[in-house]
Design a protein around this nucleic acid. Structure first.
Ligand SMILES: [Mn+2]
Ligand SMILES: [Mn+2]
Ligand SMILES: [Zn+2]
Ligand SMILES: [Zn+2]
Lengths: 132, 132
DNA sequence: TTTTTACTTTATAATTATTATAATATAAGA
DNA sequence: TCTTATATTATAATAATTATAAAGTAAAAA
């Protein structure tokens, strides 16, 4: 809710545009998609700024990186634990807010210290179903 | 168990080396790691051959691509459905053979046709725990 | 308010993973 | 053995991301 001092970042117009693009965005955009949106408002926007800002936001815990799409990173401003429903065809990602009680029994933990888990559901989205 | 005619591929020494490198391999190697292993036996081995062969094996359903590690693909010769335990520090991937009964209720499916699911457990592996 | 300073943006180059191309080589069937 | 479709290789091309360094600017200090 409220941001601690350590979480504050210098608010430049570019950063504000990137943050606004992400705010409430459930499309899990790639860096290129974010660049494409913000560069409309700021034509001088550089790709490096998008990457720099995303890295800063990640360090501050305001965005999460998803390694779901092969080749490119996708970003999620929803940092609360949740799961995903992924279209295997168009790679659309939809949030799943339901909680799952998944506990690995001692024997399956291989001495790992377990931090958390994440479920990916795979399927075909309504849009792709329509296209036969 | 037995390979159908359609699944047969021309067996070259390079392909055999790559297949043998993958056979029973539970380390979920990257293309570079596979190249590094097979190029010891075949010094003329090309990176393109590793990628070509991996693509062929994937098309034949003999290997699975994992988009877990940011930046690079990792490959899993175990194509039976299973889950993973991932070290957030060194990106070691350990198989989890336990089954989870995960069914999304109608309301959460967003009209997707659901094909399957996969669970990633995150944690710190014993090796990384030791290094403080 | 002006000055200072540390941080940010930008253009550009570099890096890394992967895919494409085309000439040469070869496994496997006739 | 001969033939041919397919595989391998060197090499170039592409795509995503990271690094560098000069120039700009938000915010703190004076
Ligand atoms: Mn999400
Ligand atoms: Mn596995
Ligand atoms: Zn789709
Ligand atoms: Zn580890």
């Amino acid at each position: 809710m409220d941001t601690k001092k350590k979480d504050s970042i210098k608010l430049t117009p570019q950063r504000i545009a990137i943050i606004e693009c992400l705010e409430g965005n459930t499309s899990h955009p790639s860096a290129a998609e974010i660049y494409s949106v913000v560069s409309e408002k700021y034509p001088t926007m550089s790709f490096a700024t998008v990457y720099n800002t995303l890295q800063t936001l990640r360090e501050k815990g305001r965005v999460i990186e998803l390694s779901i799409d092969s080749g490119k990173m996708r970003f999620d401003p929803n940092t609360k634990p949740h799961h995903h429903l992924i279209c295997v065809q168009c790679k659309n990602i939809t949030d799943v807010h339901r909680k799952f009680a998944l506990n690995l029994p001692e024997g399956e933990r291989c001495d790992y210290e377990i931090i958390g888990n994440h479920v990916d559901f795979y399927g075909i989205c309504p849009g792709c179903k329509k296209k036969k």
